[in-house]
């Protein structure tokens, strides 16, 4: 039976690994919309990270602004740029 802190540590490792992977994907994926989605997921993971590190208010802000607002901004921009031209 793992006690509380050990669970947290495992969680931390998982989050950390996932975040790195997601960041890598976000940077290297060919499709822009996928990259934005990866970024959004990364942001969500960082929210968990904040929570783990005892910063709930930051986590809330990040969840709303970081993954919500920013992602929508990205998506809108992508839509706008898609509309006009090629690609």
């Amino acid at each position: 039976m793992l006690d509380n802190i050990e669970v947290l540590q495992v969680l931390e490792i998982v989050i950390a690994v996932f975040m790195v992977v997601l960041a890598f994907l976000a940077i290297n994926s060919k499709s822009l919309i996928k990259a934005v989605m990866f970024l959004s997921a990364l942001s969500m993971l960082s929210v968990i990270g904040f929570v783990v590190m005892q910063a709930p208010d930051v986590a809330v802000t990040e969840a709303v602004i970081g993954s919500g607002l920013v992602t929508s901004l990205f998506v809108f921009t992508l839509l706008a740029t898609k509309k006009v031209g090629v690609k």
């Binding site: 976000a26 822009l32 990259a35 934005v36 970024l39 990364l42 920013v70 990205f74």
Partner: peptide, 10 residues
């Protein structure tokens, strides 16, 4: 350009 902004975000 978008990727650069994404990188900035990361």
């Amino acid at each position: 350009v978008i990727k650069i902004i994404i990188s900035l975000n990361i």
